[in-house]
Design a protein around this nucleic acid. Structure first.
Lengths: 284, 284
DNA sequence: CCCATCCATACCCCTAGGGTATCGTTCATG
DNA sequence: CATGAACGATACCCTAGGGGTATGGATGGG
C-alpha cells in the first residue's frame, strides 16, 4: 500500500494521453517493454485495471479516466512544489507578480511604491502575460501573485477582490463615436477588436497586440478600438479618446496567489494592494 | 531536471517534521545513512539547500519551509489521486457522502430519494463524521461529496450554497425557557452545551454526543441544550421543544466536492441536492 | 493469406536504493 | 578537562528493480 511513485504516474499519464504504448514510450524516451511493465506494476499496486488493451487499441477504464485527471493535477502539484522551493532558495529571491498588459487598473506603480516601504518587502519582478497564462503560472509555482481581470479559473488559487470597474472603449480621436458622452455595445458592433498576444481566441480577427503602448498606437492609427476597464484611462496616449460603454458588464479586478501560500512578503503585498485598491475605490 | 520523486519528497517531509535524521529514518523504516544520502540527492536535484545541519541540530532553510508545506500538500494530492482511482475502479463503486450528524438540514432522505430516480445515479453510502473531518475526507479522496455547515476550510474543494437557515435552540420541555417564543444568545449564557464526538473543542465541557438521537435523549433528560440550524426541528423527539435564537448568526448549508471532480454520478447528485434545497428554501 | 501494427514475455545488465560499520563533531557531565 | 553520548556524514557492499534488446502472439487491412 506504499505510495504511488511520481515516475509511474507520469508514465501512466503519457500512455493515457497517447492511448498507445509505443508512442508514449517514445515520448518518454524509454523503450516500450519497460513501460508496459511499469503500467502493469501500477495497476497491481492500485489493485485496479486502468487500461483495457487489445492488440489493436488501448482504452481507458473508469478508474483510468479518474487517474488521468487527478494524476495530472497531482503531478503538476509536485512540480509546482519543487519550483516554489527552488525559487524560495535563491538567496536573491524576488516576488514574481503576473499581470496582463493594461490589467493592473493603473494601480501598479502605486502598489509597488507602497510595498517597497513595507518591512517585509522583497524585490518584485513584474511579468506581463496573456490572460489564461496568469493562473497557470501561479498554480505552477512560477509566480507568486497576480492581478487578474475577468472570470479566470481560480481553482488552486486564493484571491481577493480589489476593485469593480465599469468599462470604457478607447477610440481614435477622429472616430465617428469619439464625441459621444457614452456608447453601448450595439454602437460598437462591427468594430475591429484586437487580439492579445498569447491569448488564443478563435473568433477575433483583429491585429495582435503585445502591450498597452502598441495598442494605443494601433488605436491612434484607426486600425482598431478596444474595450477596457475604466482604469485604462491612465494609458491614454495622444490622438485617442475614451468613452464609457454603458451596457458592458462591470469588471472585477482581483489579486490572487497560490492556495495557502502565505509568506510574509506575499502577505504584505496582498495587504498593500488591498489598501491601495480601497483608497482608489473610495474615489481617490 | 527530471521530476522530483514522491519517495524523496516523503523522506524530506519526514526529516523536516522530525528535524532529526535518525528519528525520521526510524519512522520511515529505513536506516539513517540512506536517508541522509537521499536528502542530499534531493537538494542537489533542486539546486537548493533545504536543511541546515550541525551535528547537534537540524533546522529548515527558507526553501525547506516552503518545500515542507507544498510538499505535504503535493503528497496528499498524489495519495488522493490514487485513492480516487482505486475507488472508481471497484465495479460496485458507490458515491460516498459525508455529513455531520444533524448536518443535513433534514433534506437527506428527500435528496437520496430524488437522486435514486436519476439516470446517472449510483448507490450512495452515507458517512457521518465530525466537523473538521468532512473536508479532509473529501480532499483525501475517501469521499465524493459532503453536506457541510459552518465555515469550513474549502481549499481544494468546489462548493455550492444550498440553504441559509436561522438557528434554534433545542430545550427540555420543562426548561425555564421552553415556553418562550424566541430567545437570545444572552438568555442561554451558562447553559451546558454538548461536544460532538471527534470534534476537538477545548472550551466546551458538556457531555459528548455521537448522533442526533443521543443528543435528543440528553436534552430530554435535561443534561444539555443545543443550538442547531432550524432544520433540526425534524429531529425533535418527545419532551423537547425548539425555540428560535434571534441573534445567532444564520448558518449556511452547502454541498462540496473535490475540486474539478465532476463524474456524471456526482454532477447529478449536486444537481438534485440543489433542486431539493431550492424547493425547501422557497418554503416547502 | 500475409504483412504491418502493437502489446506482452523473456532475458540480460547495471544503476541506485538500502544495509552495516565507522568516523568526526559537538555538547553534557562528572 | 576528560569522557561518553548523540548525531550526521562517509565508505563500502549487496541486490531489487528500472531499462534495454529480441521475440512472441494477436488482430485487422490489403
Amino acid at each position: 500500500m506504499d505510495g504511488l511513485e511520481a515516475r509511474e504516474l507520469a508514465y501512466f499519464v503519457a500512455v493515457a494521453e497517447e492511448l498507445n504504448f509505443s508512442r508514449a514510450a517514445q515520448r518518454l524516451g524509454i523503450a516500450q517493454p519497460p513501460l508496459s511493465r511499469t503500467i502493469k506494476q501500477l495497476e497491481r499496486r492500485l489493485g485496479v485495471l486502468l487500461l483495457e488493451r487489445t492488440s489493436r487499441k488501448v482504452t481507458l477504464t473508469a478508474a483510468g479516466q479518474v487517474l488521468l485527471h487527478e494524476g495530472r493535477r497531482a503531478l503538476e502539484g509536485l512540480a509546482a512544489a519543487a519550483r516554489r522551493a527552488q525559487r524560495a532558495g535563491q538567496e536573491d529571491h524576488r516576488l514574481v507578480l503576473v499581470t496582463k498588459a493594461v490589467g493592473d487598473g493603473g494601480m501598479l506603480p502605486e502598489i509597488l511604491a507602497a510595498y517597497e516601504s513595507e518591512p517585509e518587502a522583497i524585490a518584485v519582478d513584474v511579468l506581463f502575460c496573456g490572460f489564461g497564462e496568469q493562473a497557470a503560472l501561479l498554480r505552477g509555482g512560477f509566480a507568486d501573485v497576480g492581478l487578474l481581470h475577468g472570470r479566470p479559473d481560480l481553482t488552486g488559487l486564493d484571491s481577493e477582490d480589489l476593485l469593480v470597474e465599469g468599462q470604457v472603449v478607447i477610440l481614435p480621436a477622429r472616430h465617428r463615436l469619439a464625441g459621444r458622452a457614452a456608447v453601448t455595445l450595439a454602437d460598437l458592433d462591427g468594430e475591429v477588436m484586437p487580439r492579445w498576444a498569447g491569448l488564443l481566441q478563435d473568433d477575433a480577427e483583429g491585429p495582435e497586440v503585445r502591450d498597452a503602448g502598441q495598442l494605443m498606437q494601433l488605436i491612434a492609427m484607426g486600425r482598431t478600438v478596444a474595450i477596457l476597464p475604466e482604469s485604462a484611462r491612465g494609458y491614454l496616449g495622444g490622438d485617442v479618446v475614451c468613452v464609457p460603454v454603458l451596457d458592458a458588464p462591470p469588471t472585477t479586478m482581483m489579486i490572487a496567489w497560490p492556495e495557502q501560500s502565505r509568506s510574509p512578503a506575499l502577505a504584505a503585498f496582498v495587504r498593500v494592494a488591498a489598501g491601495v485598491a480601497a483608497r482608489r475605490g473610495k474615489g481617490d
